[in-house]
């Protein structure tokens, strides 16, 4: 009898457990989805010293289905090819911004967010940026995540000569969580 009384004293944790469960169930009905967004080569616009392209996730069915219950942008990755037709080595940088009206490299460097730096392509060669390469050199995730939350952003690639250094096959991979 004494033992049962002693054991009942150890039930203090049950109300605590129920309290935690009651307050913390919001994430029980959550899922994670991946959008693979391909930018068509003809939608990459060229001007002096840069290439520009828009990313609009709001047209994607998965985004439409879950945008109202979006919890978090968990990851954003990009893959592409950088093609150098020059006879000398070329370097490139990728910036992102909510402003799609930036027209020169000075304005981009001043107001956009640098996410990939030091992309180096040998003369008359190309650089394939795959996921592994991207994760090695990627920076400023928080700023990119805030941009992606809106569903729309603009990418800018600054290159030494935009008529001879091209960006091709640009793909954005967005992983997000949302309530179901």
């Amino acid at each position: 009898m004494n033992r049962i009384i002693l054991n009942y004293r150890h039930l203090w944790f049950l109300p605590l457990l129920l309290l935690v469960l009651a307050s913390g169930c919001w994430f029980l009905l959550s899922g994670t989805w991946v959008i693979i967004y391909a930018v068509a080569d003809e939608d990459i616009h060229q001007s002096t010293g840069l290439h520009k392209f828009d990313v609009n996730l709001t047209d994607e069915d998965v985004w439409k289905d879950h945008k109202d219950n979006l919890d978090n942008i968990e990851d954003v990755a990009m893959t592409f090819n950088l093609v150098n037709e020059m006879g000398t080595e070329a370097t490139g940088r990728i910036y992102v911004s909510s402003d799609n009206s930036l027209t020169d490299t000075t304005a981009i460097k001043a107001s956009a967010t640098l996410i990939l730096d030091g992309l180096t392509v040998p003369a008359n060669d190309s650089l394939k940026v795959d996921l592994a390469f991207y994760y090695d050199v990627f920076q400023n995730f928080e700023a990119l995540r805030d941009l992606v939350k809106t569903g729309v952003f603009t990418g800018y690639a600054i290159v030494p000569n935009s008529t001879q250094v091209h960006i091709r096959h640009f793909i954005v991979v967005v992983t997000f969580s949302a309530s179901v």
Binding site: F27, S30, G31, T32, D71, N72, E74, S177, A178, S179
Partner: peptide, 12 residues
């Protein structure tokens, strides 16, 4: 096993 995520949402 449901795990909450920083910034919102979770993994089940």
């Amino acid at each position: 096993h449901a795990i909450s995520l920083e910034g919102g949402g979770g993994r089940n």
